[in-house]
Design a protein around this nucleic acid. Structure first.
Length: 434
RNA sequence: GGAGAGAUGGCUGAGUGGCCGAAGGCGCACGAUUGGAAAUCGUGUAGACGUUAAUAGCGUCUCGAGGGUUCAAAUCCCUCUCUCUCCGCCA
């Protein structure tokens, strides 16, 4: 969400940005907003003038009413003034109705006009134009065949997709035994990794109100992702980012409380509307998974530096598991409307012989702050909108795919990365039962 | 789930229809006093929006949120949210 003043003063920049994102259909919205905004301010001014008059007259009525106790003739005067105000009331009512209507229309448009993207974002229409920036670790392909991840899990008696299908439908899983333990180990390691980086561990609410949802994501995303609780104004979170950024709704943070650096655990619930494909079976894309997240709320001038730090944390974490990764920068057309800049950290899949997404790091600029009215106050008492960022620390079901594939040995056993062994009761290897 | 109480500025706390954007106190800032400090005294201390060159003026809105009554609402009415207390239930 943009500052309407920015749009008013820089309509060309907003149009240029829309073009960069290949959303030309939204171009007319800029002029629409400008037109509505002009009328709105006109209406506001007229209404204010009427209110000024009404307030003045009302004050006089008050004075006259007071005096009328001593001098009954004042009562007559007061009555006359009352009628004068009543005469103007209809006009004010009309203006107020129009003001409300215009405000809603403007807001609706502003909610879908995309955030101004960073200069450094590569221009491209779809995810095909995302850009590989850097690789970390040597992507290796072993000389034996690597089975599909669910098969590896099954060989370790670690998963029951059939029962999950019967109980909850497609997109759910039962994890069992060492795999379930490995899942928790990864989360626990991710948590401690972030705590060591100075982040504060947090367990947030897993359901949030509609207004918070609207504050943290675009309508399009909301529709495609969020589960609503029947009969309540509550949604299951799609990521703890939602609760975590929502935590600061309507708050004015003293500047010395910035940056806020938090690492949160939560289950994540997603509809995954319209997502398909062979490579998305198993535990790759599911309705419910667990995630350790990192979020930052910081001064605007610091958000670029934080963005760089955050994605590098993900790289470091995956390298500690000895999983090869790469940074893939999100191009303009693939960037969600609220985001200024975003990249994925992708893990190497020796089975597919390609990289796949395991982390997503985003700088939202002031978009979420503006929607949620999150503000910071500097020493001079001036308030401003801080920037918000988020990044996946680790989302175990999906990262387990990378972990199992990259640590699988020819005999079907799976090596437990050293850093995870303390969380696995000292186990160094997982051995197939049969 | 049942019963009750409450929500006012950074905090505390007055205010039950008009001169209330809000007394008093605390805190904070600045000044005076002091060799310096404490104490004391004085002054000032919310946010959003519009207008504007302006953080100057002026105006509008905001006393949990939304709606209503009224010439006029912190104050009266309705709905909702949250907090606290008691009872019940419960991981």
């Amino acid at each position: 969400m943009l500052d309407i003043r920015f749009l008013r003063e820089n309509p060309d920049a907003v149009r240029e940005n829309i073009k960069k994102k290949f959303q030309d259909a939204k171009l007319p919205m800029v002029d629409e907003v400008i037109k509505l905004d002009e009328e709105n301010r006109e209406v506001i001014q007229q209404a204010q003038a009427l209110r000024t008059e009404r307030n003045a007259l009302s004050k006089q009525v008050g004075v006259l009413m007071g005096q009328s106790k001593k001098d009954p003739s004042k009562l007559q005067e007061a009555e006359e003034l009352k009628q004068k105000v009543t005469a103007e009331a209809a006009r004010l009512g009309e203006l107020e109705a129009r003001e409300t209507q215009l405000g809603e229309e403007i807001r609706k448009l502003m909610m879908v006009i995309p955030q101004i993207i960073d200069d450094t974002v590569p221009i491209g229409e779809s995810d095909e134009f995302n850009v590989e920036v850097e690789r970390f670790g040597e992507p290796k392909v072993p000389d034996f065949e690597i089975p599909y991840h669910t098969q590896i899990m099954e060989s370790l008696d670690g998963i029951d997709m059939d029962a999950a299908g019967r109980v909850s439908g497609a997109g759910f899983y039962y994890l069992l035994g060492d795999i379930a333990r490995l899942h928790e180990a990864v989360l626990a390691y991710g948590r401690d990794f972030m705590i060591d980086k100075g982040f504060t561990y947090c367990i947030p609410p897993f359901m949030i109100r509609g207004n918070v949802v609207e504050g943290v994501m675009s309508f399009a995303d909301m529709e495609a992702m969020m589960y609503k609780i029947e009969g309540e104004d509550l949604y299951l979170i799609g990521t703890s980012e939602h609760s975590m950024i929502g935590r600061f709704i309507d708050q004015i943070l003293p500047e010395d409380k910035l940056p806020q650096t938090l690492t949160s655990y939560s289950p994540c619930f997603r509809k995954e509307k319209g997502s398909h494909g062979l490579e998305e079976r198993g535990v790759y894309r599911i309705h419910q998974f667990e995630k350790q997240e990192m979020i930052v709320v910081c001064k605007p001038e610091e958000s670029k530096a934080w963005y760089e730090k955050l994605w590098r944390y993900s790289v470091e974490l995956f390298r500690n598991f000895d999983i090869p990764v790469r940074q893939l920068e999100c191009c303009s057309g693939d960037l969600a409307d609220l985001k200024v800049k975003s990249c994925d950290i992708e893990a190497w899949s020796p089975r597919q012989k390609k990289y796949f997404e395991v982390c997503s790091c985003s700088n939202l600029g002031d978009a979420q702050s503006r929607r949620l009215k999150i503000r910071a106050k500097d020493e001079n008492g001036t308030t401003y909108l801080p920037h918000t960022l988020n990044n996946t620390c680790v989302a175990p079901p999906r990262m387990l795919i990378a972990l199992l594939e990259n640590n699988l040995q020819a005999d079907g056993s799976v090596l437990v990365p050293k850093v995870l062994q303390p969380y696995m009761g000292g186990k160094t290897v997982l051995v197939p039962k049969k």
